[in-house]
Design a protein around this nucleic acid. Structure first.
Lengths: 263, 263
DNA sequence: CTGAAAGCGCTTACAG
DNA sequence: CTGAAAGCGCTTACAG
């Protein structure tokens, strides 16, 4: 029987199935498609979410961030999707309260100020900032600077920048280092142009922590892991296994040759 | 009435609507998500397709190319989508006959060998290759070389490479230029490494046509226009306005400062 | 033009 | 356990 069904190429009608079963096996993924984002990182997220979703027999409906809260409401309200994954979430993101009001569960990639009731996954940027400083402290540095992301990133309320800075400051305080943080443009030239300012503010500076996409080989965001984790959390929510939760991935420190004792 | 409906936040159930009306207002978009593609160009296509689809009140279901023909069959067979847009189509792409057998119309971004019955949009790469040579001929060059994409691109059967080469050769013959074509690795170093070989084969070479992503600022593929055009063609097919057709966008030549008369 | 009814193709709860 | 029936929430063709 199963076999003849396959032979005949029978495939259930998705709409009828959704109507009767009350689920669609489709996830919404909201991606920022403006030009100023880090395109390869976004692409990694999208790829990993689609691939992970397929491994759970789900498909992905792709929405752009510029549809805003109305877009979320639209696809959720018309029961096109069973759950939503939202990227590029800002600190005071207006979409968060909207998501809270939907019948479908949501997982944010990013960490808003008040995520109560909504699941979040993100890199632990506070720990990342902390770890960078700690590493320099262990190399004997006593005076460190943060080459941060550009002012626009802080202004947009992108919470990861603030969290990284908080971790940086915490560690500087804890290890009793002199420190200064500086917002820099996301180009090699912009980052380089920051250095004189940093030296002026903190003449004895010997160590730099860079949280700036262009100052380095792109900061290695574990986009693949985060995307897969977001899908896994969605699936657990759909199974009713647990309620909303926040999961922050611990950073891994990669020793390269940029670190040494101060001269 | 309309107003109270909006007030109450009524949104028709997408599954029920699809079942009764026999269409979903969803398009499938198949994107190549392997690492060796030009990520920003893919992203441009995806963005423009999603944005254009929304302007026609349609959503986009994102599939990865590695689901292959089975993925197309799956979403079409279960009536999840009304039509399909397929990127990264190769010359002898096995997905083309599968698409031909589906109930839903499809538009390819790219041009396979035998597109009979399926709509295609692409840049006119033959005209692009031709135009490059013509431009050099008009500047007085008599001996030109093609810095082509790497051998892997030709081997994969990516039809645009062959079409560009054909246009290059046609123009060289027509303008009676000496010419040579060379496959080069898609890095600045790779392209540079080709030059001695080219000079060895054609000592008097004075003009270069580059069809190699890394040799130049990325060749300016009009991804935005192509994506929007693909959606427009899909909509016309869905309205039954016409049958399958191929549309090749004419290249636009941008005069920069890389061209001069031969010394 | 208006409105009640049939039917789209499934799933699921229920009778046997 | 099996199978017929009801029902999911819409659209559309049809009767009035």
């Amino acid at each position: 029987m199963e076999e003849s069904i396959a032979q005949l190429g029978y495939r259930p009608h998705a709409g009828a199935r959704a109507l009767a079963s009350r689920h669609t096996n489709v996830l919404a993924l909201v991606a920022p498609l403006r030009r100023d984002v880090n395109v390869p990182v976004i692409m990694k997220f999208v790829t990993s979410v689609v691939t992970a979703a397929r491994s759970y027999d789900h498909d992905v409906l792709l929405l752009t961030k510029d549809e805003g809260a109305a877009g979320l409401d639209r696809v959720a309200g018309s029961a096109m999707v069973d759950a939503l994954i939202v990227m590029d979430v800002e600190a005071g993101d207006v979409r968060v309260p909207v998501l809270r009001g939907l019948r479908q569960p949501a997982v944010l990639i990013g960490l808003p100020d008040r995520p109560a009731g909504i699941s979040c996954v993100d890199l632990d940027f506070a720990a990342t900032g902390y770890t960078g400083v700690q590493h320099l402290a262990e190399h004997g540095h006593r005076s460190v600077a943060l080459v941060g992301p550009p002012p626009a990133v802080y202004q947009r309320g992108t919470s990861y920048a603030a969290r990284f800075l908080a971790g940086f400051n915490d560690a500087a305080a804890h290890f009793r280092l002199a420190s200064v943080a500086h917002a820099c443009e996301p180009t090699f030239e912009g980052a380089a142009a920051c250095l004189p300012d940093i030296r002026a503010e903190l003449p004895g500076v010997t160590g730099l922590v860079a949280h700036n996409e262009a100052a380095l080989a792109p900061l290695d965001i574990p986009a693949q892991d985060l995307g897969a984790l977001a899908v896994e959390m969605v699936m657990h929510l759909l199974e009713g296994r647990h309620g909303a939760q926040t999961r922050l991935l611990a950073p891994t420190l990669t020793e390269r040759d940029s670190c040494a004792a101060p001269r």
